[in-house]
Each structure stands twice: as C-alpha cells, then as structure tokens.
Amino acid sequence: TFEVERIVRKKIVHGNTSYLVKWKNYSSKDNTWETEDDIRTKYGDLVDDFEK
C-alpha cells in the first residue's frame, strides 16, 4: 500500500487540479501527479495543510 509523505506542488490544467505527491519510503524521482479528488478522498488533511 502506498502512503503519501507530503504534497510537493500543485498544478491546474483546464480547470482540473492535480498535486505532485511524494510517497513515503520512495525517492523523489518516484513522485507522481494525482488528481485532487483521488488525494482528497484519503488524504484531505494533507491537501488542506498544503493549501494554507
């Protein structure tokens, strides 16, 4: 199971928000862009903290 360590960046393309996710126990080269809906479902607190 993958676990988010932190959110690195945010991008908005054509009105759709995605977050660059750093995965726990993986290197930064393994970071992936994930949709806001996918990340918010399980890691809403991390998204809220990133947006502060």
Results as ranks from 00 to 15, higher is better:
11 K>I: 09
51 E>Q: 05
9 R>K: 12
4 V>P: 14
26 Y>G: 12
9 R>N: 12
8 V>P: 03
45 D>Y: 14
10 K>Q: 04
30 D>I: 10
2 F>Q: 14
31 N>D: 09
51 E>N: 09
44 G>F: 10
37 D>L: 12
51 E>K: 05
44 G>D: 05
27 S>D: 15
4 V>I: 13
14 H>G: 13
16 N>H: 12
15 G>Y: 04
21 V>Y: 00
4 V>K: 01
12 I>W: 04
28 S>H: 13
18 S>G: 03
2 F>P: 14
39 I>R: 00
41 T>G: 11
27 S>M: 08
26 Y>N: 10
35 T>C: 09
41 T>Y: 11
40 R>E: 03
12 I>S: 08
44 G>E: 08
22 K>M: 08
35 T>E: 10
50 F>S: 03
25 N>K: 07
41 T>E: 13
8 V>D: 02
23 W>Q: 00
19 Y>F: 08
18 S>K: 12
8 V>F: 04
42 K>S: 08
17 T>N: 05
20 L>M: 06
41 T>K: 14
4 V>T: 01
52 K>N: 11
21 V>A: 01
31 N>V: 09
13 V>F: 06
49 D>V: 10
23 W>R: 01
5 E>V: 04
22 K>A: 07
34 E>F: 14
52 K>I: 09
20 L>K: 02
44 G>K: 14
32 T>D: 01
17 T>D: 02
5 E>G: 03
48 D>I: 08
25 N>H: 11
34 E>T: 05
30 D>Q: 13
28 S>D: 14
41 T>N: 10
37 D>G: 08
35 T>A: 13
41 T>H: 11
24 K>C: 08
46 L>A: 06
15 G>A: 04
40 R>A: 06
31 N>R: 05
25 N>D: 12
25 N>E: 10
39 I>P: 11
48 D>W: 06
45 D>E: 12
47 V>Y: 06
39 I>M: 15
19 Y>R: 00
3 E>Q: 08
38 D>E: 12
40 R>N: 06
14 H>M: 13
13 V>C: 14
1 T>Y: 13
24 K>S: 05
50 F>E: 01
40 R>D: 03
47 V>L: 13
52 K>Q: 11
46 L>C: 05
31 N>F: 12
33 W>L: 01
31 N>K: 05
4 V>A: 13
52 K>S: 11
37 D>E: 13
22 K>C: 07
25 N>R: 06
29 K>N: 11
24 K>M: 09
19 Y>V: 00
42 K>M: 11
13 V>L: 10
39 I>T: 04
51 E>W: 04
11 K>E: 06
28 S>R: 05
35 T>V: 09
37 D>W: 12
33 W>C: 06
38 D>Y: 14
35 T>H: 10
10 K>A: 05
42 K>R: 11
20 L>Q: 05
23 W>L: 03
19 Y>T: 00
15 G>D: 05
5 E>M: 03
50 F>G: 00
3 E>G: 06
30 D>S: 12
10 K>H: 03
28 S>M: 11
47 V>H: 13
6 R>S: 12
8 V>Q: 03
37 D>A: 14
45 D>R: 10
25 N>M: 06
33 W>T: 01
21 V>T: 02
31 N>S: 10
52 K>A: 11
39 I>W: 00
14 H>R: 11
52 K>E: 08
26 Y>V: 14
30 D>K: 14
31 N>Y: 15
2 F>M: 15
1 T>K: 14
8 V>N: 01
49 D>T: 09
21 V>W: 00
16 N>Y: 11
7 I>V: 06
12 I>T: 11
24 K>R: 10
18 S>Y: 15
11 K>H: 06
6 R>H: 07
29 K>G: 09
46 L>V: 08
36 E>I: 08
48 D>E: 12
46 L>W: 07
43 Y>T: 03
7 I>M: 01
13 V>Q: 08
42 K>Q: 11
52 K>F: 08
16 N>A: 12
6 R>P: 02
26 Y>K: 15
25 N>Q: 05
16 N>S: 11
15 G>W: 02
14 H>S: 11
15 G>M: 03
8 V>G: 00
3 E>A: 05
12 I>K: 07
2 F>C: 15
12 I>A: 04
19 Y>C: 02
38 D>S: 13
36 E>C: 06
45 D>N: 12
10 K>S: 07
28 S>G: 09
42 K>F: 12
15 G>N: 05
3 E>P: 05
23 W>T: 02
36 E>L: 07
